Structures are given as structure tokens and as C-alpha cells.
Amino acid sequence: MADEHTHVQEFFTARAGDWDARFPDDGPAYAAAVAALGLRAGDTVLDAGCGTGRALPFLRDAVGPKGSVLGADLTTAMLEAAVHAGRHRAAQLLVADVTRLPVRTGALDAVFAAGLIAHLPRPADNLRELARTVRPGGLLALFHPIGRAALAARQGRQITPEDLRAEPNLRPLLAGSGWRMTSYTDESDRFLALAVRQD
């Protein structure tokens, strides 16, 4: 586990400074994904693996001034980039491991997770931990601003049938981790899987 976390931290620490500059056009995709999550004014939402906080202003707008937004990331450099971009004003930022969150059971109405699933060391257990923090009937959005095929092409690889984000793999993975998938979109300009927390 420590080695996996170290690898993730090293990967994102090396890229934190220019992360936003590398993906300058993702804002509308984040806004649309947050809108699809269906948050209500006053909700409490976690951006799990928030990185530089690109979703945080949209989450704040969705829950309003009486809502609560938390942004958790394992990599301090990414959170520092979020502060530098002024996104800390939209949320409370936590240096935290999403595989063991410092959040009370059932405290959240929703979790937003952009690009997270590919970095989870034990996906079933880790999705179960996210489920622990969300009330029954609460929501989960697994998002990426481009689809699986476009992401694979960007990374110079092919999509394989084993890809966790493929619908036949993701649906049972979520079901075994306390979630029921309610929608699945994998298009060139976005990946978005929405799920509801089961009782």
C-alpha cells in the first residue's frame, strides 16, 4: 500500500505545477458532470482525489452558501496548486487518503471523483470506503473529461476488456461496493458513471 501511495504521490507531485495549463479546456466538462450529479442547496459533497480543485467551484455553486464542500487529495503539491488557483475559497481542503477518509459514516450527500478510479489500489474496498461516508440514497459521480478511448489514445495505449471503467466491469464492481449504477456515459468528450448509495 505504501509503495502504491508513494507512486501516486510522485506522479502527481511532478505534474502539479502545470496540471491546469496542460488541460485548459476541461472546465465545461467539469461543470456538466457536476450538474449531472444533481446536488441540492445545502448538501455536503466530497471531491475525492480533488487534485488542483477544478471541480470545487462548480460543486460550491451547486450546494450554495449553506452547503459544505470538501476536497481531499493525497498529494500536497496538488492541493497547493488548488490554493494558488484560489479554489480553496470554494472548499475545505484535506490532505487525506481516499482509501481511509477522515469523514464520519453517512456524513456526505455525494462524492465526486474525477480520474480517481484508475489510481485506487484496491477498487472494491476503496469504493466501499466512499460508500461508508455517504448516506443511503446519496450519490457518486465517477468522471473523466474525456472518454476511455480518447484517454487511451492520449496515453499511447489500447483499451482492454479488463479496463475497470468498462460498463460490464464497473457495474458489478459498484454493486459489490454498496452502489447501484444509475447511468453510464463513455463518449469522446466525457466519461461519467453515476451511482446511488444502497441501504
Results as ranks from 00 to 15, higher is better:
13 T>H: 09
45 V>H: 01
17 G>Q: 14
153 A>S: 12
190 R>D: 02
184 Y>I: 02
11 F>Y: 13
115 G>A: 03
95 V>I: 11
36 A>P: 03
101 L>N: 05
178 G>L: 02
147 G>Y: 08
13 T>G: 05
79 L>P: 01
60 R>H: 14
182 T>H: 00
142 L>C: 10
180 R>G: 13
101 L>G: 06
196 V>S: 02
75 T>M: 12
164 L>V: 13
73 D>I: 00
8 V>A: 10
136 P>E: 09
176 G>H: 10
86 G>Y: 13
167 E>T: 01
142 L>T: 12
124 A>C: 01
16 A>E: 11
151 L>K: 07
14 A>Y: 01
75 T>Q: 05
191 F>L: 11
190 R>A: 10
43 D>V: 02
24 P>W: 09
32 A>F: 07
169 N>M: 09
172 P>H: 01
107 A>Y: 12
156 G>T: 10
174 L>Q: 04
92 Q>T: 14
92 Q>G: 09
161 P>Q: 09
10 E>T: 10
87 R>C: 06
112 F>L: 01
119 H>M: 11
105 T>A: 14
145 P>H: 13
150 A>E: 14
150 A>K: 05
110 A>M: 02
182 T>Q: 04
154 R>E: 15
160 T>C: 00
135 R>A: 15
48 A>C: 10
175 A>T: 05
108 L>A: 10
